[in-house]
Design a protein around this nucleic acid. Structure first.
Length: 292
DNA sequence: AGCTCTTCCTGAAAGC
DNA sequence: TGCTTTCAGGAAGAGC
């Protein structure tokens, strides 16, 4: 569930403590979600964390090699995805260890960076500098940075449901189920609408809605659903402002109609059946193939 | 191209 | 009450 605002919240917390810190050793618990566990223990010690970036829902720690590093000529980024229940933050070694903590990166200042993930849907991987642009190019644009023209272009001609495309990280990076539903509610667009059928005004409304929702969610330090807490361990507050997500049968904030929940694009989707009118063709599933 | 289904995993909640 | 089943979901892959 950590989506763009939650990951941004974690990243902002890490930025206050991690830059300039050097990793001295690595301890791992369960490693089935780590791409190449031995490589972490091998390559990380002696590397300094220079910069922390968010790439959609991924956290990237840019590392530089110090004299202790094994292959100082090689450059790496440590890339972390929080999956559903991941958490990344800095603790003191004598702080209690949260259950399901599977990676410890001990720092030269005596603290440690810990990765906790109940369900282990997250990822940890070491990406060599030369592979970073390929990694980033697999992802779509940042929804907070995209222009209206580019936004329209990304969706033009796409016959998939808008909800499916908002969730597709190759189209836009960082949007997940909660913020897709919140943005569609805000823009008054039904999640099952086909992207190609959205008119200019709807596209403009959707882009604005996404920006607004994400910016407000970042201000509120994310939504604390399924145990999300920031790098310091504090919950976010945006869940109190949800207008659609998780509000099945509750009155729409605009019109009072009961919010509906339906599986669309394989995800539970919450919307107002009145403010977000259902498309005619898609719902009937009258897909017909020319007889050959 | 795009849809559905499956897999990964755990804990909460619903069902019996 | 207590055990069992179902569900949630980000991403990737299979199959249609």
């Amino acid at each position: 569930m950590p989506e763009l605002p939650e990951v941004e919240t974690i990243v902002r917390g890490l930025r206050t403590v991690l830059p300039g810190r050097t990793i001295v050793s690595v301890r791992l618990g369960k490693t089935d979600f780590i791409e190449d566990p031995p490589a972490l223990a091998e390559e990380l010690p002696g590397r300094r964390i220079e910069k922390i970036e968010r790439m959609g829902k991924f956290i990237s720690l840019e590392l530089s090699a110090g004299p202790e590093a094994k292959n100082p000529e090689r450059q790496f980024d440590l890339i972390v995805h929080l999956g559903m229940t991941g958490w990344l933050g800095v603790r003191r070694p004598d702080d209690p260890v949260a259950p399901h903590t599977h990676a410890f990166f001990e720092l030269e200042n005596g603290h440690e960076l810990r990765y906790t993930d109940i369900r282990r849907f997250g990822q940890i991987r070491l990406v060599p500098a030369e592979g970073k642009s390929a990694f980033s190019e697999r992802l779509g644009r940042e929804p907070l940075e995209i222009s209206a023209a580019e936004f329209g272009k990304r969706l033009a001609g796409r016959r998939a449901r808008i909800k499916a495309l908002l969730l597709d990280q190759r189209v836009f990076r960082g949007i997940g189920n909660i913020y897709a539903d919140e943005s569609l509610w805000q823009a008054r667009i039904h999640p099952a609408r086909l992207a190609a059928r959205l008119n200019r005004a709807e596209l403009a409304r959707l882009r604005t809605a996404i920006r607004r929702v994400l910016q407000h969610a970042i201000q509120d330090r994310g939504s604390s659903i399924s145990n999300f807490v920031d790098a310091e361990g504090q919950p976010g507050e945006y869940q109190q402002r949800h207008r659609a997500y998780g509000r099945e049968s509750k009155p729409c904030f605009r019109c009072g109609t009961k919010i509906k929940r339906e599986i669309i694009a394989g995800r539970s989707s919450f919307f107002c059946p009145r403010c977000q009118p259902r498309p005619r063709s898609t719902s009937a599933r009258t897909r017909r193939r020319p007889t050959s």
